[in-house]
């Protein structure tokens, strides 16, 4: 049991952050506006959650220009993906 709880990640215990990670797991990358559309949250809210995931090393950011407008792409890091999978496995075991 202790091992399981160890795999649960505090950073993912939030609906928006869980949503961000889920979406980034199945997409190569997503930009800010698509994430916002998917999760249906405000700019500020999304930005702060993304910042937290970035600080944890789960997500990386690439800034580009698209038609001279800044476009920020978000990627899940390898560590982020591994940790998220372990998090899901832990949840599955806890439910059983």
């Amino acid at each position: 049991m202790k091992d399981l709880l160890k795999d649960l990640v505090k950073a993912f215990e939030n609906k928006t952050r869980l949503g961000i990670m889920s979406a980034l797991m199945v997409n190569d990358y997503l930009d800010f506006s698509s994430l916002k559309e998917l999760l249906d949250v405000t700019d500020g809210n999304l930005a702060s959650h993304l910042k937290l995931l970035e600080k944890g090393g789960f997500v990386t950011v690439r800034k580009e220009f698209l038609d001279r407008k800044p476009n920020t792409k978000y990627f899940a890091t390898e560590i982020g993906k591994e940790t998220f999978i372990r998090h899901i496995r832990a949840i599955e075991k806890l439910i059983q």
């Binding site: 949503g19 979406a23 797991m25 199945v26 949840i91």
Partner: peptide, 22 residues
Amino acid sequence: MDKKKYLDDLHAIKYMMERSSR
């Protein structure tokens, strides 16, 4: 142990993976 919360989380993950890719 709040199983319900974890079950909800699992549903949310699955839904978001579907929604964001298909």
